[in-house]
Write a protein that binds this DNA or RNA. Structure first.
Lengths: 124, 124
DNA sequence: CTCTATGCAAATAATTTGCAAGCAC
DNA sequence: GTGCTTGCAAATTATTTGCATAGAG
């Protein structure tokens, strides 16, 4: 547990929506944490490998985002097409559906991603 | 409607799963179509702008994929984590859910992405 | 001390842009 | 002819890798 890993983890813990590597980097800089972008990437990889953080790709976005895995229930997201605001959705309507899909496609379903996008209250 | 646009469109029409720009490019080359990768990108942008093709980003994939928009019903996809095989899912369980989400988040929902991944029959 | 993490530079991969020449109508 | 399209080169953005050094246990 190094100083930089601590910083990355701390920021992910205190942010309520998933952050991209460059967002993480920019915020750490602003907090005067001496860190390299590459180190942010490497820490995210390491934290993902040990199951502490989860990597997600939001609908139509070009980069990955990361959020804390532990202690979080399975959930999805909704993102504003205008300002980019991201919120969690705690509901997941897909448990029953998975069995149906496995039956119809003969795939074994590992996971799913369900992301909504639209306009947040301010942007409507 | 140029020769290259015709080729891009023709390939998208004859393929039953979404293709990435580089896949399109590679296949056109193989068919001896003289075309530049940049032209593939520009045609996809243009076709997307006029609503002929749809851009999608599959769960955890790094590049965009494109598929025909017209004449296709709203659908989702499932991709094999092992061999990359992609199939369509015609069911969409989310229509009712959208209203609920709009009510709970106060977002106005524009669209959603729902992608499954797992292992196809051969890879299990 | 020994091993893993970090910084810096550089390599990749996906995608976009500038510009001059070519094709469609 | 006029304007949109294309090709080639180069710029951008996200991400990864090599290597020598710094820091953790």
């Amino acid at each position: 547990m190094t100083r930089t890993r601590q910083a990355v983890l701390g920021l992910l813990e205190s942010t309520k929506y998933p952050l991209s590597p460059s967002e993480l980097y920019a915020r750490l800089k602003k907090q005067n944490v001496a860190i390299d972008l590459v180190t942010v990437y490497r820490n995210l990889h390491a934290l993902k490998a040990i199951g502490v953080v989860r990597q997600i790709k939001l609908h139509q976005e070009e980069q990955f985002r990361y959020e804390m895995e532990e202690g979080r229930e399975h959930h999805h997201h909704i993102r504003c097409k205008s300002c980019g605001k991201i919120e969690d959705l705690l509901l997941c309507p897909l448990k029953k559906l998975t069995a149906l899909i496995e039956q119809e496609t003969r795939f074994l379903v590992g996971d799913h991603s369900l992301e909504f996008s639209g306009w947040c209250p301010k942007c409507q």
